[in-house]
């Protein structure tokens, strides 16, 4: 390992471990609350939970600067929270309230924050990839040292936009980090039922994109891989592809009866869940203590409670505003 590669490893200080733990738990507790609120009909429409996949957004996001851009999918609450989009604004958005980040116009699937360069929130599978290519093209043409990170599921690999975008990014050597969150199911269709080549990262390699697969249930592995990837992209070496192998513990959306997988399979994955695994490791290694995690949990419980209170108190948009923000006010 070269000196430079060593620099790219995560520095697992106590503070950093606290931070990783906090980020993953914030997603988990926020979404558990969201599921509860959904059953109370406070949140409507589609609600896609990220529970089980927290290590991916958390690990990747450690490596970014505020100037970097992020494109995500309809399963993006976690990405928004780790990026620093306030939980209050995300929760109010899911309520459809005026205080939501998108004034309630988007809901759960369309979290945006221009301030955080967080570009959604895209409910068209594969639709975010060309957008990420374009954001990176703009950065390259304007000589800005930014990276665009594009998150998508393995289902997107079946879309033409996936292949078109990988080709464009490689052809033009654009600063894009493609992060495939391979949770094995495109809604209810298992990977092997939809892809002739199930090794997703091999597809990227065929476009001459540096590509690697990583254990997406291990936040440290994800962060380490993302550090290598982002460093290469920022260094002008063109796009990079990370396939994070992960698993969604909850249903695809709240409408999904999960007829396509067994409870045993879910249980098996839950046992190697990212929070459980990291928590065991940091406590056994003495980096964190049970008290630390309890303190984090208490902070998060308060934050979630405050977010719900904010969303509850936030007004609805006036019906008179219906036609606003379709085009620039003239």
């Amino acid at each position: 390992m070269s000196a430079k590669d060593k620099d790219l490893r995560p520095h697992l200080t106590r503070d950093h471990c606290l931070d990783l733990m906090r980020n993953m738990l914030r997603i988990r507790r926020f979404e558990e609350k969201a599921a509860e609120l959904y059953t109370q009909e406070k949140i409507r429409g589609f609600l896609h939970l990220y529970i089980g996949e927290e290590a991916v957004a958390t690990g990747v996001m450690q490596t970014l600067t505020p100037e970097d851009a992020i494109v995500a999918t309809y399963r993006e609450h976690g990405h928004a929270l780790v990026r620093g989009v306030p939980m209050t604004g995300v929760m109010a958005e899911m309520y459809g309230k005026s205080g939501g980040v998108s004034k309630g116009r988007g809901g759960s699937m369309h979290i945006f924050s221009a301030e955080h360069r967080f570009y959604g929130g895209n409910a068209i599978v594969g639709g975010g990839l060309p957008l990420a290519v374009g954001l990176a093209l703009a950065d390259k043409m304007q000589n800005r040292p930014n990276v665009t990170v594009c998150f998508f599921g393995e289902g997107a690999a079946a879309e033409g936009e996936f292949h078109e975008s990988l080709n464009l990014a490689a052809l033009w050597q654009l600063p894009v980090l493609f992060v495939c969150e391979n949770n094995l199911y495109a809604m209810g269709t298992a990977l092997a039922r939809s892809e002739s080549e199930t090794d997703i990262h091999a597809k990227a390699a065929s476009y001459k994109i540096t590509s690697e697969a990583v254990d997406g249930m291990n936040v440290v592995d994800v962060e380490a891989a993302a550090r290598r990837a982002v460093a290469a992209v920022r260094d002008g070496k063109g796009p990079y592809f990370l396939e994070c192998r992960t698993y969604r513990f909850r249903a695809h959306s709240m409408f999904d009866p999960q007829l396509y997988r067994s409870k045993d399979e879910v249980t098996e994955w839950e046992e190697k869940g990212p929070i459980r695994r990291f928590s065991d490791w940091v406590t056994k290694s003495g980096l964190l203590h049970a008290d630390d995690i309890e303190a984090i949990e208490a902070d998060i419980a308060k934050e979630v409670e405050d977010a719900v209170a904010f969303a509850e108190a936030s007004p609805w948009e006036e019906v008179e505003t219906l036609l606003e923000d379709v085009g620039a006010a003239s």
Binding site: A69, Y119, G127, L129, P130, L131, A132, V133, G134, L135, A136, L137, A138, D139, M141, Q142, G160, E161, E164, S165, N167, L168, L171
Partner: peptide
């Protein structure tokens, strides 16, 4: 561009979002 209408139109849209 390659013959990738969705890809390059989307890239143009992304570039516009990025300030071009």
């Amino acid at each position: 561009t390659p013959l990738s209408e969705s890809g390059f139109t989307g890239a143009g849209i992304g570039a516009a979002l990025g300030g071009m």
